[in-house]
């Protein structure tokens, strides 16, 4: 999977491309942790290039959400394909994460 990290306003956007499977999930976790270690506490994951997510991937997002719950922290997901959105919704994750239709919609509120 490919991860592109870009700073937008006062947040960091990680654009993900590929499958979030057993190989990609730890890679993604490291990338999110690196962004947090660099001091960014507002992270948006752009899912427009993601067609598949495994349970290991879901675990990575829960771990990130747990670390980003301080005052002023933001953690959101945007541009989810229908089948990926379905997994998040049915697993109950939509009550933990903020999910946005577009990147602009997410960043406008940050």
């Amino acid at each position: 999977m490919e991860i592109t990290t870009v700073t937008r306003g006062n947040g960091t956007v990680l654009s993900l491309a590929g499958r979030i499977d057993t190989v990609a999930a730890p890679m993604l976790e490291q990338a999110i942790n690196r962004v947090m270690e660099s001091g960014s506490r507002k992270i948006l994951l752009d899912f427009s290039g993601v067609s598949y997510i495994s349970s290991g991937g879901l675990r990575v997002f829960l771990a990130a959400a747990k670390k980003l719950k301080g005052p002023g922290d933001r953690f959101g997901l945007c541009c989810l394909h229908a089948d990926v959105l379905k997994i998040f919704r049915l697993a109950g994750f939509t009550s933990i994460f903020s999910i946005y239709e577009t990147e602009g919609e997410a960043l406008a509120g940050w």
């Binding site: 997510i53 495994s54 879901l58 829960l62 997994i87 049915l90 697993a91 109950g92």
Partner: peptide, 8 residues
């Protein structure tokens, strides 16, 4: 994936 996710 949904079952595991729900449990997580």
């Amino acid at each position: 994936t949904v079952m595991a996710g729900r449990l997580y």
